[in-house]
Design a protein around this nucleic acid. Structure first.
Lengths: 225, 225
DNA sequence: AGCGTGGCTGAGCTGATGCTGAGCCGCAAA
DNA sequence: TTTGCGGCTCAGCATCAGCTCAGCCACGCT
């Protein structure tokens, strides 16, 4: 297991390095943001442990830059801040976990192991299919540059379809996940809402992202139509 | 997005439920461990939010039980304990994240989103014979680059033939698997549907993937014709 | 070559499926 | 109270999938 530590405070960096080496990890250290980004680009790490407050380039920007390059290496963020919105920001930006300083080494180790166990897989904070994108945190949907207004129900329907983009999704599945497990009503609501969605995200753009798979359900084209 | 909350304290449970429903999630609540486990077994949730201290069955045991059954639904653990080893335990047991009470709703939401974002969904393999391929999840069939539209019945017939590619499959077998074990009708339906299939996957491409084995049934050429 | 059986197909009926516009209800802001 | 909006139901319509059937074709046997 090969780790990169990005941490500007020398004592903290050294302590982390020693501890993790003692646990059997191979560890490299960068003391500022740009160096960290450079190392992360050039090498393939199993995980990155990254401070937020960094000279040159903040931890946020570092993660953002990596994710923009489709680099999904697990990142564990360390921060002296304890404002809750910082944490929310980091996770929505694509960090994998978050620790507030001071933290105990045991907790760091446990979280690092949890993060490593999950391994690398693409998980963009913003869902996108072609030029169609949906940001769950911001509750925003856009086709290219055009912002699209959706009602809450329309939004969850699209979110569910986008999370399963490319799959044919049955109406029963949709009813369970977007409406309620015990929803008693007619599955016709889905047809109605699919209609609403199409009128907002497809028709004005001459696209066909939301496809009917007769007898099976619906499918969102993974290329956005 | 469908969630299960397992929380015995009624005020906490209600608060969570309200907040998450307001965020657009579909939420079910269990007030003790055994109920939670039962619901988690019976239904397919996108994530579970689970207290540690539960009557009947602790959160630890609940996760352990699910994981033992190969159920990898993401679990976010809540706990009033703050001993660091508890956290390490929960993560090592297979929880996906951990929050210590009291926590803010914003943080819960951010972590929940992070956990949902990396949610796994193992996809069934794509069946293929030569340049003919069938994706059961996407309900899509293609010959080379050309997408082919099939009706549900045609689709299951082709799927069955592809799963037994190279074998001669009797009409009785087909009737049994593609129609119904208790199907009463004439086996002539099969001939009709084989005809439809050929017109869609063979004739336009000058191929002969679906072969008649006179007196025995049909065979799908394992090289796709 | 003739014949019978197994296999194929076009026509057509029927119920199922999906889509849409109209309209109701409840809630919340004006 | 009125207005607007989101959520939903419903009925009507168009289309389609599933199936049956009758008649034809072709394979393989004598």
């Amino acid at each position: 297991m090969r780790l990169l530590i990005v941490e500007d405070e020398p004592r903290m960096a050294t302590a982390l390095q020693r501890g993790l080496v003692a646990e059997g990890f191979t560890v490299e250290v960068a003391f500022n943001g740009p160096d960290g980004l450079h190392l992360a680009r050039e090498n393939s790490y199993d995980a990155i442990v990254c401070d937020i407050m960094l000279p040159g380039l903040s931890g946020y920007r570092l993660i953002e830059a990596l994710r923009a390059e489709q680099n999904w290496v697990p990142v564990l963020v360390l921060s002296a801040k304890d404002g809750e919105y910082d944490e929310a920001d980091a996770l929505d930006l694509g960090a994998d976990d978050y620790l507030v300083k001071p933290f105990s080494f045991v907790v760091l180790l446990a979280r690092l192991r949890a993060v490593l166990r999950r391994g690398v897989r693409p998980r963009p904070a913003i869902l996108s299919c072609g030029d169609l994108s949906l940001d769950p945190a911001a509750r925003a949907v856009r086709r290219g540059e055009t912002e699209i207004e959706l009602t809450p129900r329309e939004f969850s329907l699209l979110e569910y379809l986008m999370r399963r983009a490319g799959d044919a999704v049955s109406k029963a599945d949709i009813l369970h996940h977007v409406w309620d497990a015990h929803y008693e009503g007619d599955a016709n609501v889905i047809e109605v809402y699919v209609g609403y969605l199409r009128r907002k995200i497809d028709l004005p753009f001459g696209r066909h992202a939301v496809q009917t798979v007769r007898g099976a359900g619906y499918r969102l084209a993974s290329d956005g139509g």
